[in-house]
């Protein structure tokens, strides 16, 4: 088993997935590495890849002309980044920057989309997992929106 396969088989995100489907996923994967300050992608880019972060930290940010970037989420070890590759128009909505030395497995969205199209069972297994990821992030986002700590009192 390659280190890619062994990592992905163990990954909680893919837990319970058929071995044959994991093999299909591995077929679209490669190892990547980013130095602190490297951008993985920018807002408006085509969403070709998604990532399993092996170690490090990535910041998702939106740029404001007069105030610099605002970071709204960071991702770290074992997190999965990106679902834009799965839904049209396959486009990035924000910037992603490494804040630490980050090693990840990048999965080719184009490649995997084709495989999902050919094998709907794989498509369902992937969709199932990404919907869960979306729900988790949506829940966190809602909590973030509530601003539960309240603004400081002057």
């Amino acid at each position: 088993m390659t280190s890619l396969t062994s990592y992905l088989v163990e990954h909680p995100f893919l837990k319970g997935m058929d071995k044959k489907h994991i093999d299909l996923v591995v077929g679209c994967a490669k190892n990547v590495r980013y130095n602190p300050g490297d951008y993985l992608f920018h807002e408006g880019d085509e969403a070709d890849w998604f990532y399993f972060i092996r170690e490090g930290q990535l910041a998702l940010e939106v740029f404001r002309p007069h105030k610099g970037g605002i970071v709204f989420q960071t991702l770290g070890t074992n997190d999965v980044l990106g679902w834009s590759w799965l839904v049209a128009p396959y486009m990035r909505h924000f910037d992603c920057r490494a804040t630490e030395l980050t090693r990840a497995i990048a999965l080719d969205g184009n490649c995997l989309r084709k495989k999902c199209e050919e094998d709907h069972e794989l498509g369902y297994a992937m969709m199932n997992r990404f919907v869960k990821l979306t729900e988790d992030e949506l829940m966190a986002l809602r909590l973030q929106l509530m601003d539960i700590y309240d603004a400081p009192i002057k």
């Binding site: 998702l60 940010e61 610099g68 605002i70 970071v71 709204f72 074992n78 997190d79 601003d147």
Partner: peptide, 23 residues
Amino acid sequence: VTVDRADNKWMGNVGVVPTLAKR
């Protein structure tokens, strides 16, 4: 340690604290 919002000078984690449970 995490914060709900930050500018890009903050090098730490951004996100609500329950999401840290997975760490």
